[in-house]
């Protein structure tokens, strides 16, 4: 019975993969037809984008700029998650502090990303710390709000169990609190990475001399749409590798107990 169910799941996953690939192929085909029909530099054909990608790859530029952007994404992500999680968990557990800080959060959430970036560059100079700090500051309010909700929903019964059995602070944090916050960390991570890499491109465009954002700005001035799209797809590829190679396996591992049921 179990193997029949597993086979059915595998079949369903297989067919969904085929549908996704077919859908992407149709997209590329429609794009190629429209580009061929328009015959305009503003919309290059898929093969022109591919050729630009190969040129950038062979020159080593692609790896250099992708690497710089990825490093900025990772740095900003770590800062945003660390600061945002600590504040979010604290606010979730301290209603008074939450009432005080909540208006600041709403304020920060509504400041446009561009304003934070420009002000960071003006106040702290055109340097790496200002760039990463600006990206992190854009993301921190979202992380705070997500983790605050997580901390509010902690199960008091587990906290009481930990108190009765005299768990140390670290034991409580590691084995009782953080596992309950895992879905909230996962949500903040997912939305965080997708938001951060988009903001990193703006930061690079405005004030850095390398990275995908810088390259897009450069090729925008040259009106080279094929290379702009080549960098865009290359970075989307990197983020897909992060999603399927890191985030999803990690998610599956931390949620391994959820798929079980009474035997």
């Amino acid at each position: 019975m179990m193997s029949v169910a597993k086979a059915s799941v595998r079949r369903s996953q297989g067919s969904s993969f085929v549908i996704s690939v077919t859908s992407l192929c149709v997209f590329v085909l429609v794009w190629a037809v429209v580009a061929w029909w328009l015959d305009d530099n503003a919309l290059p054909t898929p093969s022109a984008v591919w050729q630009s990608l190969v040129v950038e790859f062979r020159s080593g530029e692609l790896f250099h700029h992708l690497g710089m952007t990825l490093l900025r994404v990772i740095a900003a992500f770590i800062v945003a998650m660390a600061v945002g999680s600590a504040i979010g968990i604290w606010l979730g557990m301290q209603p008074l502090a939450n009432r005080v800080v909540d208006p600041w959060l709403i304020l920060l959430l509504n400041i446009p990303a561009l304003v934070i970036i420009v002000l960071s560059y003006i106040w702290f100079g055109l340097n790496e710390a200002a760039a990463i700090g600006a990206v992190a500051l854009n993301k921190i309010p979202n992380v705070v709000i997500t983790l605050r909700e997580g901390a509010r929903s902690l199960n008091p019964e587990f906290a009481e169990m930990a108190q009765v059995y005299r768990f140390s602070f670290m034991k409580r944090l590691r084995h009782v609190v953080l596992p309950q916050l895992q879905p909230f960390f996962a949500a903040a991570t997912r939305s965080g990475i997708s938001l951060i890499w988009k903001i990193v491109l703006i930061v690079e465009l405005l004030g850095r001399s390398n990275g995908v954002g810088f390259q897009i700005h450069l090729y925008f001035q040259l009106f080279d749409v094929a290379t702009i799209l080549a960098y865009t797809f290359a970075f989307i590829g990197v983020m897909l590798v992060v999603e399927y190679g890191v985030l999803q396996p990690l998610d599956k591992y931390t949620n391994r107990w959820r798929g079980t049921h009474e035997r």
């Binding site: 019964e157 587990f158 009481e160 169990m161 009765v164 009782v176 596992p179 931390t254 107990w257």
Partner: peptide, 11 residues
């Protein structure tokens, strides 16, 4: 303590 609910950590 043994509570009314087992209070085992599900993970």
């Amino acid at each position: 303590a043994v509570f009314q609910e087992p209070r085992l950590l599900p993970w």
